[in-house]
Design a protein around this nucleic acid. Structure first.
Lengths: 219, 219, 219, 219
DNA sequence: CATGAATGAGTCTTCATTCAT
DNA sequence: CATGAATGAAGACTCATTCAT
């Protein structure tokens, strides 16, 4: 870090470290997805990442720390896909379209990273403190995001009166439940029996149920 | 309970065995709820059940086996609370009431057994293969139950056209999500800050969202 | 522990546990003596004790705990060999004889348990907190014992005026130094070159130097 | 210090190397003193020395090697403070004064370098073979020095008949014991409770006990 | 039937040392 | 010469399961 070298190499060094970190993060994500937080052994992670035991601890303090990093990254990505819905701005798309776009973006992100999706569903509320709390926090944050959206929606008369926290829990659960069904079906790669759902399908149902419920329209 | 003597024991022994089994099952449920599948140690279970290590293995083949039994029992209870909704029979209550009753019964059962509720949410897709698969099966069964109900509902025009499996996943997830929120709040015992939700509240929102969605009625 | 059995067996069970404990304690003492606190691996201890890894932890909480137990036992033994020197009682042996007897008993105990002797000298002030502190405590206690003896000796005019703590340190160090020399020489088993010292020799010199110093008598 | 250029460097390089070596040696001494041989990590040493990991191994073959060097240096210093006591030369100071001077010089050196003092006492017979043997050698040499002095003293009738090796061990131990007591008390810097011993105090007691023992003079 | 002592595979983590840059 | 990323052997400890009594 003394930088006897001109300029570029420095960043190349850093780039090396960043790449390594990525490599470990990705390997860990896969392993967590496959085996759950507890079932994931450092061994499995370093084997997948093709690194030595010590190298792992060069980049992450502990197993819990990688887990944290994975969730942090996911949370950041999710946040970046969610914005306040513009109702006043006449140049903006209609609220329902904005909503649908965000749901598509969000769901698309999670479902696009199969390992992440599995990890999020799977370890849901893992056992020992460290990891559990992190997942709980994660879902807590998401729920708060939804609560805020519901309250804003209610303020502008878009959303009916309800207990926002319960409904947020219901909506979050709904999304998880729907992703779970997607995951159950074989990789969207090719010929295999059983239905296969696209993000479009899923978004349609989520929005359908979420907005209008399951009853037939002639209510 | 020591019974070194022969005696007439047959039935008394059986009754004893059944009680012992219950005792272990209850202890295990609590421990699984408190610590998750992995975090639950045989040690903790036998301590809570006040039995010796070996005795545990006299009643259950393995840790996974107790877990199984707990889920089996829960499944049986749930099934017993769910019936075909009678639409034709004019003497029966109206479908919506029948539905609500079943939801109340079901939710009430799960929420009434706090340990069970925690266990079901917590370990959701637990770590080690063994246990994971069992939970997946459990939820699979529940989902199938809902799919069938949706299809019947659709057949009689009560439910709108949809992809039943996805919607079943959404509804199941919704219920879990709502229970989760309930669990997050302090025991419904007494004075403590924050809202506290009753089964009634929860059922209202579940049915509300599930049947009509979140939109304001003037759609 | 339910004790369905009459009476004797209970103690036999306990005897078994006590023997096991002894077995581990002895193995550990040897290993600590050979390799020092840090150098001693649980592996080495269980190999020497011919037990499985888990068994070790059935009897001791940790490596540090066995170390503690060894020191505790030694301390108890030492204490039991040290008594107040009777000066007033005319039927008692003369003070110098009483002193010599105690030194013989004490030194004999330590030197008779070669492993203990090595352990006490060796790890003297080991590194990481746990064990270090225990050894420091141990020597602190011994030093306090000597300080008290010196003060009593001074009170009856047997011992000259001095800074008791420093002198206690000096005397304790002297004993350790002398034991160290003994340890350096081959097991007192048989024919081998170099001098070999008996407890008698050692006591003589310790008492000689301790009481009269090294100067020739015609001071 | 980066010196990518050839330059005239020879001597300047050497001087640089020597300084670096010193820097590492001093850092290591502190760390060994603080943490013991085992507890001392290369990490801690290079952090304190403000150098890179690899650099350490450019100056020392291994952790054990630095430890060796520290002891070698101390040994050299001690030797330089010990001389044959002149009895014949009438112009020389009286033997007892010469002795006292040397004890003062020696003890002063060790106690003056607190880190060294701690290191020497602490690791007394450290754990892993490598280091242990070196410390044993060190003390062996010191003991031999004392044996020689005792034999010379006996030859000229200054010292009474005794087993020189045992007595040497006793004296060496005494010195260590006394230093240990000094170390136990807070830095001789300022206001703090408990006694504090000066080198003078210590030398007095060492010489007192060593030469005359602990008995009251009216023997 | 009940017991609990014994087992050992497996887990996470540390750290001295090497070597390509 | 200096650097620090990479290595992997080794360590302490846990825990589900077995089996002789």
């Amino acid at each position: 870090m003394v930088s006897r070298v001109p300029a570029d190499p420095v960043s190349s060094l850093d780039r090396g470290k960043i790449e390594r970190r990525r490599q470990i993060l990705d390997a860990a994500k896969q392993v967590f997805a496959d085996a759950g937080y507890h079932g994931a052994s450092i061994n499995a992670i370093i084997e997948r990442a093709q690194i030595a035991r010590g190298t792992f601890y060069l980049y992450f303090e502990s197993k819990a720390a990688v887990f944290d990093s994975i969730l942090d990254e996911a949370m950041a990505q999710l946040r970046s896909r969610i914005h306040r819905i513009e109702v006043e701005d006449p140049t903006a798309a209609p609220p329902q379209v904005q909503l649908r776009n965000q749901v598509v973006a969000t769901l698309g992100y999670v479902v696009g990273d199969r390992a992440l999706a599995e990890l999020l569903l799977q370890s849901a509320h893992a056992p020992e403190a460290e990891a559990t709390e992190r997942l709980d926090q994660f879902y807590g944050e998401v729920r708060r995001l939804i609560v805020r959206a519901l309250e804003q929606g209610a303020a502008i008369g878009l959303v009916r009166k309800c207990q926002p926290e319960l409904v947020a829990g219901a909506l979050l659960g709904m999304v998880r439940g729907v992703i779970e069904v997607m995951m159950l079906h074989p990789e969207p790669d090719a010929s295999s029996p059983g239905p296969r759902y696209t993000v479009e399908d899923v978004v349609n149902e989520v929005i359908g149920v979420g907005l209008r419920g399951v009853l037939a329209t002639e209510r």
